Computed example of a mutant assay.
Amino acid sequence: MNTLMVADDHPLFREAIGAAIRAGLPGCRLLEADSLDDALKGIAEEEEDIDLLLLDLGLPDAAGLAGLERLREACPALPVVVISAERERNLILESIALGAVGYIPKSTPRRAMLEALRQVLGGQIYLPPDIMRRPPATPAADHDSFLAPAAPDAPSPLDALTDKQLQVLARLARGEANKVIARELDIAETTVKTHVSAILRKLNVGSRVQAILAADQADLAARLARLQPRD
């Protein structure tokens, strides 16, 4: 039996997500907190029994990502999934970089939310695919940047990846699970795991999220475009 804690200051949302979890994940034990301090108090009392904490970044005493940092410092071994109304891609990646094991927008349909929780409870990281597949916003160019010569031949960490590994990395960046990647690329799930291990080794990172952060998304998209068959 898994024990989940929902830390959110809106009673109606806690009630709604609690009903969804009880219906979709039968046997789960659900704890509730209406503030970060309340969550930390509950964790201190039952830390060994809590398998996953669902944290709303909008808690009055959480101060956004600072609340996540505080929680990770206090309970580094406790898996945390961020649940937020915010859908900014950079915020999602920052949350994961700070140690969250998933990010679920509050607008996520019930079925997708339950699948995300199953994925996280199964030891994987969840990223919302509809947001992650969007190209990141192009940063504004520095006003003097045209004075600096371009460096088209600068080495890229993606140079070491094979075509198939590039395809796998792109799907990791969309938040897809191994099973989905295997189906889309028509390969075995064990082969996906082999590719992921190779990607981590070649990019010199220790996790999927670090691989996503290490990859230049524009460079990755350009390389994938070149892999597409021409008519």
Rank of each mutant, 00 (worst) to 15 (best):
G58Q: 12
L68T: 00
E48A: 12
V196N: 04
R29L: 11
E45V: 13
E69T: 09
D49R: 03
A173G: 03
A19V: 02
R183F: 10
E46H: 12
I199D: 03
V196F: 08
R183A: 13
R223D: 08
E45S: 15
A97G: 09
I199S: 10
R118C: 00
F13C: 09
R22C: 00
A137Y: 13
I125D: 01
I96A: 08
L53Y: 02
R72T: 03
L65S: 02
S156W: 01
L185R: 09
E48F: 14
L78D: 11
D8M: 05
L172M: 10
I131K: 05
P136I: 11
R29Y: 07
R133F: 14
E184K: 09
G64V: 06
A39H: 09
E88L: 10
I125S: 08
A7P: 14
E15H: 12
I17W: 15
R110Y: 03
F13L: 11
T194Y: 15
L31D: 14
A141E: 13
L161A: 08
A177W: 01
C28G: 08
L158K: 03
R201Q: 13
M132V: 11
E32P: 08
L203I: 02
L213M: 08
H10T: 12
D153Q: 13
P149K: 15
V192K: 05
G58Y: 05
H10C: 05
V101Y: 02
L31T: 12
P155Q: 09
Y126Q: 02
A170Q: 14
R70L: 00
R230V: 11
I21D: 01
I43T: 03
V81W: 04
S207T: 04
A137N: 11
G24C: 06
E73C: 07
A116Y: 07
R226F: 10
A112W: 15
P79M: 02
D61T: 04
I125L: 01
A23I: 08
L31C: 13
